[in-house]
Amino acid sequence: MLTVNVQDATANLSDLLARAERGEEVWIARDGTPVVRLVPAERKPRQFGIMNGPDIPDSFFEPMTEGGLAAWE
């Protein structure tokens, strides 16, 4: 666990964010008392497109066959 005071956190914010993203527990203290814990944000999977529509099968993203490619030429 890493605890830093507010002034050090302000001066080293980018480093502290990177450490928290890697899973290190980072606390910011005021007058020696921990008050805030930095944690990575939960990432939601990206949605394909912006409209609701049919589910896209995984096979959609597979390489095309030679015959399929020839049909597009």
Rank of each mutant, 00 (worst) to 15 (best):
V39Q: 15
A9L: 09
V26A: 04
E42V: 15
V26C: 07
G23D: 05
L38G: 08
R22Q: 12
R22G: 02
R37W: 04
D31C: 00
M64G: 09
E73A: 11
A71S: 13
A41T: 14
E42P: 10
L69Q: 08
G68T: 04
A11G: 01
G67A: 14
W27S: 09
F48A: 15
W27I: 02
E24K: 05
A18C: 00
N52E: 12
A41W: 07
A9Q: 11
E62Y: 10
R19K: 15
V6Q: 08
F48M: 14
F48E: 06
G67N: 11
E73M: 07
L17E: 05
V6K: 10
S59N: 05
L13W: 10
P57H: 05
D58V: 14
V4S: 01
G53H: 03
I28L: 07
R43H: 12
D55W: 10
W27T: 10
D31F: 08
T65F: 07
G53M: 03
D31P: 00
R46N: 10
L17R: 04
V35W: 01
F48P: 01
A29C: 09
D55C: 02
E42T: 14
F60P: 02
N12Q: 11
T33N: 10
P40K: 15
S14N: 04
A71N: 04
D55K: 06
E24N: 08
R46T: 13
L13V: 03
A29F: 07
L38W: 11
R22M: 02
A41K: 15
V4R: 10
W72C: 01
T65H: 07
P63V: 11
D55E: 14
L16Y: 00
I28E: 01
T3Y: 00
I50Y: 13
M1V: 08
E25I: 09
M64I: 05
N5S: 08
D58A: 14
L69T: 03
F60S: 03
V39K: 15
L38I: 10
F48R: 15
V35Q: 12
P57V: 06
L16P: 00
V26L: 03
